[in-house]
């Protein structure tokens, strides 16, 4: 897709750690992977924006950079952090879902050694059969706007 190529090129040119992926009208940005400690799982974060008129459901993800990927959600309540595995995440029409530290994340299990600053590819899988390719830079800390916690949806 020319537009996607163009956007990727533009963000690369300005060194913006944002990559766009388009699967129909699903857009992904603010994607990054937290540099994991040695022999540890890595957490991946992003915003998934659904610009279509129908809800879409994320059911999984794959990458060549890790053995497998699970969808997890950390929840902090009453001063206790709990984590649970999610089978799927639904993104309502014209809304977005934020994957960010202390909220939802992709858990990259048994990743290959990752280096700060490198970019890896993650294929998001949706219930409809659609895929979205996400490029995520490996970073120690989040992009500045993404420092918040939890997840929320907005139009």
């Amino acid at each position: 897709m020319t537009l996607k190529r163009f956007l990727v090129l533009v963000s690369a040119f300005f060194l913006i750690p944002t990559q766009w992926a388009a699967a129909g009208e699903i857009m992904v940005d603010q994607s990054w992977v937290m540099l994991p400690p040695p022999n540890s799982a890595a957490a991946g974060f992003m915003n998934i924006r659904n610009h279509s008129d129908e809800a879409v459901t994320l059911v999984g993800a794959e990458t060549a950079s890790a053995k497998r990927i699970e969808i997890h959600r950390s929840q902090i309540s009453d001063g206790v952090a709990r984590m649970e595995r999610l089978e799927e995440v639904s993104i309502p029409a014209h809304e977005s879902v934020v994957f960010s530290p202390k909220g939802m994340h992709l858990m990259l299990i048994d990743p290959i050694p990752l280096n700060e600053g490198e970019t890896i590819s993650i294929q998001l899988k949706f219930e409809s059969g659609a895929d979205a390719l996400v490029k995520a830079m490996v970073q120690r800390r989040p992009p500045v706007e993404d420092a918040g916690s939890g997840h929320h949806s907005h139009h």
Binding site: M34, P36, P37, S40, A41, A42, A43, H72, S74, I76, A81, M83, P101, K102, H105, M107, R140, R141
Partner: peptide
């Protein structure tokens, strides 16, 4: 308090 297999909260807070 945490554990090293914690993929999200612990590394984030230590960072």
């Amino acid at each position: 308090f945490g554990y090293t297999s914690c993929p999200d909260v612990c590394p984030f807070v230590l960072q």
